[in-house]
C-alpha cells in the first residue's frame, strides 16, 4: 500500500493509527494524503452508523475539493468469525461491516490484502 501510493517518497501525508490514536476531521489538513489505519478499532470506540456516515462524507468532500487529494482507509476484516454472543460485540461487527460497504461503494479502488499481496476487488 505504501508502495502503490508512494508514501515512502517525499509525498506529504498524515497517518492515523486507529489502534493508538483517535480519528480526526480535515480541519487544518495541510497534507494532500490521509491514511486511516485500524478503522475497525476506531469504529469500536464509537459504533454509531450515523456518526461514521457523516465522517466519511466530510472526508469525501475534502477529497473532492482538489484533484491531488486522497483518503486511504485500512481496516481488518472482522466480519468472518462466529457471530459473537455479547450484544456490544455483535453491534460493533455489524457497524463495521456496514461501514466497509459504505466505503467500498464510495471508493475508487478497493483491495483485499493477504500477507502483503493485494487482490484488487474494485
Amino acid at each position: 500500500m505504501r508502495g502503490y501510493y508512494e508514501l515512502d517518497k517525499a509525498t506529504s501525508h498524515r497517518w492515523c493509527n486507529g489502534y493508538e490514536q483517535d480519528a480526526f476531521f480535515p480541519d487544518e489538513m495541510k497534507e494532500r494524503i490521509v491514511v486511516f489505519e485500524g478503522l475497525e478499532a476506531l469504529i469500536r470506540r464509537l459504533p454509531d452508523r450515523v456518526y461514521w456516515e457523516s465522517f466519511f462524507q466530510t472526508w469525501h468532500e475534502w477529497e473532492q475539493e482538489k484533484d491531488e487529494r486522497c483518503v486511504i482507509w485500512i481496516g481488518c476484516d472482522i466480519t468472518q468469525g462466529i457471530v459473537p454472543i455479547a450484544k456490544e460485540e455483535r453491534h460493533w461487527r455489524d457497524v463495521t461491516g456496514w461501514c466497509y460497504q459504505q466505503l467500498s461503494r464510495r471508493c475508487d479502488r478497493v483491495d483485499r490484502l493477504w500477507c502483503g499481496l493485494a487482490e484488487r476487488m474494485k
Partner: peptide, 13 residues
C-alpha cells in the same frame, strides 16, 4: 489469526 479483530491488550497487539 487476523479475522477476530485486534485485541486491546498490549502483548497480543
Amino acid at each position: 489469526l487476523f479475522s477476530g479483530g485486534v485485541p486491546q491488550d498490549i502483548g497480543t497487539y
